[in-house]
Design a protein around this nucleic acid. Structure first.
Length: 320
DNA sequence: GGTATTTGACCTTA
DNA sequence: TAAGGTCAAATACC
C-alpha cells in the first residue's frame, strides 16, 4: 500500500509542478501535453497497484465490487487514509483523480471496446424513422453497441448520469422487465440537423443505484469542429459485456470510495433550458480542469479545449 | 414560439 | 405473444 501512496504522492507533485509552471507553459502545448501524460501515467501506476491489492484481498465469493460499495475484504482503511491524505495536503481530490484516471483509461479501452463489443460496419443505419413508419429497428448485433458503466453523482441531480460530452434528447422511457429502474432512451440532439444516428440508453443497475449502465449505439455524425468529440463517446468506464463483473468493477475503482463532484454530474441531456453545461469543477483546480478539458474532449459547450487551456484563469471562474 | 420532456400507443423482433 | 424500442401528441419550460 505504501507504494500506492508513493505513486499518488508523486502524481500529485507532478500536478503541483504543472500548476506552478502553467503560466510559463501556456504557449508550449507539447510540453504541457507531456506533463499531463506523466501525471496520468503516475495515477495509472497507482491505480494498477491498487488493482493488484484489491485482487489479492478479494475472495472468490465476494460480490462484484462496484463504485461506492465496499466489501469486508477491501482495504477500506487504506482508501480512507488516501482520501484524508489527499484532502489535507494536496489540491487533487479523489474524484478528480478519478476523472483523470478515467480519461487516461479511455484512450486504451475504447479500442478494446471496439474489438469486443462493436460488431460491424453497419453503424446507425438500422433505424430510419419516417412519416410512413417503416420502422426498421436493428436489434442486438446489427449495430455497434458500447456498454459502459457510469457512476451516478452523489450530489445534485442524481437522476442523471454525468455529462458525456454530447447533447442528447430523451425520446422515451420504458419499464424493463425484471429491472427495478426504468430505462431511458436518448438520441442525439442533432439527429435531424446532421442526420446523426447516435443513440444511448441509460438505466440504473438493479443492485447498485449509484451506477448507470449506458449503452451507446450508432455513431455521431454531427461533428462540427476538430475538437468535437470523436465518434466514440468518452468512455467513463468501458465494459466488455463478455467479461464478468469483477473486471468491470476493477475498472471502476479497486478499493476506494470515490465521489463525483456535482459539477461533473450535469444532466445527460443539455437542453435549451439549462443551456450547455460548461462548468466542471467548482473548486480552484486549473490543472485538473485542464486535464478534464483535454481528456474529455467533448464538452457540449462546444469550447475548444485549447481555448479552455489558454484562456485567462479569471475567465474560467466566470464560466463556473 | 421554439425546444425538450413525458408518456401511452404502436411497431418490431425473438 | 411478450418485451423492448420508437413514435408522436400533450405538456412544460424558457
Amino acid at each position: 500500500m505504501e507504494e500506492v501512496i508513493n505513486s499518488i504522492r508523486r502524481a500529485s507533485e507532478l500536478v503541483q509542478n504543472l500548476q506552478q509552471d502553467l503560466p510559463n507553459l501556456a504557449n508550449q502545448p507539447e510540453t504541457l501535453s507531456l506533463s499531463i501524460d506523466q501525471i496520468t501515467q503516475a495515477f495509472t501506476d497507482a491505480k494498477e497497484k491498487l488493482l493488484l491489492i484489491s485482487r489479492h484481498t478479494q475472495t472468490s465469493e465476494s460480490p462484484p465490487m462496484l463504485l461506492h460499495e465496499t466489501t469486508p475484504q477491501q482495504p477500506q482503511m487504506d482508501a480512507t487514509l488516501i482520501q484524508e491524505w489527499l484532502r489535507s495536503s494536496h489540491a487533487v481530490t479523489m474524484d478528480q483523480m478519478f476523472q483523470m484516471q478515467l480519461a487516461s483509461m479511455a484512450g486504451r479501452e475504447v479500442e478494446d471496446s471496439e474489438r469486443t463489443i462493436g460488431s460491424e460496419g453497419d453503424q446507425g443505419q438500422g433505424i430510419h424513422a419516417s412519416s410512413s413508419r417503416p420502422r426498421r429497428r436493428s436489434r442486438e448485433g446489427n449495430q455497434e453497441k458500447k456498454k459502459i458503466l457510469v457512476p451516478a453523482p452523489q450530489f445534485g441531480n442524481t437522476e442523471m448520469p454525468p455529462e458525456d460530452g454530447f447533447t442528447w434528447r430523451k425520446y422515451g422511457q420504458k419499464e424493463i422487465l425484471g429491472s427495478k429502474y426504468p430505462r431511458s432512451y436518448y438520441r442525439c440532439t442533432h439527429q435531424k440537423l446532421y442526420e446523426c444516428q447516435a443513440k444511448k440508453m441509460v438505466q440504473r443497475l438493479d443492485h447498485n443505484a449509484n451506477i448507470f449502465e449506458v449503452t451507446y449505439r450508432g455513431k455521431h455524425t454531427c461533428h462540427m469542429s476538430s475538437t468535437a468529440p470523436s465518434s466514440v463517446p468518452p468512455e467513463h468506464i468501458l465494459v466488455d459485456i463478455t467479461q464478468n463483473t469483477n473486471t468491470i468493477s476493477s475498472q471502476l475503482s479497486p478499493s476506494v470510495n470515490l465521489t463525483l463532484h456535482p459539477a461533473t454530474a450535469t444532466a445527460a441531456t443539455t437542453s435549451a433550458r439549462g443551456g450547455p453545461s460548461t462548468s466542471r469543477y467548482a473548486g480552484d483546480y486549473p490543472v485538473l480542469d485542464m486535464a478534464d478539458a483535454m481528456f474529455n474532449s467533448g464538452s457540449s459547450s462546444g469550447n475548444n479545449s485549447m481555448e479552455f487551456l489558454f484562456s485567462p484563469t479569471e475567465d474560467k471562474s466566470d464560466a463556473n
